[in-house]
Design a protein around this nucleic acid. Sequence first.
DNA 1: CATGCAAATACAAATCATTTGCATGATTAT
DNA 2: ATAATCATGCAAATGATTTGTATTTGCATG
Lengths: 141, 141
Amino acid sequence: MKKLDIQEELKKNGMKSTKHRVAILDILIKKDQPISAENIFFEIQKMDVAINLSTVYRNLEALLEKGLVTKLSLSGDSRSVFEYNRMVHRHYLICLGCKKILAIEDCPIKGYEHQIEDETEYQIVGHKLDLYGYCPKCKKK
Amino acid sequence: MKKLDIQEELKKNGMKSTKHRVAILDILIKKDQPISAENIFFEIQKMDVAINLSTVYRNLEALLEKGLVTKLSLSGDSRSVFEYNRMVHRHYLICLGCKKILAIEDCPIKGYEHQIEDETEYQIVGHKLDLYGYCPKCKKK
DNA sequence: CATGCAAATACAAATCATTTGCATGATTAT
DNA sequence: ATAATCATGCAAATGATTTGTATTTGCATG
């Protein structure tokens, strides 16, 4: 997505367009995997844009509220990771060796939610499924 | 489980039996739902046993290593919760209203792990599935 | 293009959950 | 009982995230 499109996207959502927001979205859109606030901070600095870590957090918070990004916390890591919200239901496959995160769009839970609704009288609004294992490279060791 | 059995269980796992450890396990065994370190701390104080929060953390860590308890971090909460390890594979149903956590022993993922192994060449070692929704009480509001 | 207002930013300090260092106290094998 | 070992309290450190506040910026308007 081009810089102009990102600015457009921000305004469409009632947000001011700033170089920091554009940079954050740009990074998130390009990354194929979720990334932490601190890593976003580092990436932006690599682009020779000065930014403060709290600005990263505040912007992620704002983008989150507008639904432009999603936040996820994975088992065994105390920090959250963020990704551009591609509006698809996703699950994740996390490599316990190198910590790489792979997104999976396939979802095996469809009918199960209804079954649980019937069994428990709860109203289910969503679910979170993550798989843990070892990627081909880490598997060898 | 009785106090004596808990002491037995601790020794069987090569741990010294202390009043704090017994109290922690006792609380965990009685609770039907996962509980945070701080809440364990409060519960122990209610039993008129003096304890420090760092002792709770250190003991949970030790019990975790011995496999006597399990730790889980749930989406949208920055603190971890713990439960007695009943040696069953479990999923959780979290009420977004009152935050109650219900354990579900049924698991719909069985075959899916193999399918993903075939598709991705990863070696899957486990998964985490949590459902989010509203319990019968909170559903009404 | 100047300008004013609301929103965004930097920076430091606060917070929250969790961990650690160290001196002291309890538990267990001998 | 005694020593060796491990557990504990307390305070201070840590790491991730949030917040207060003075300053700067984006952008609608004249």
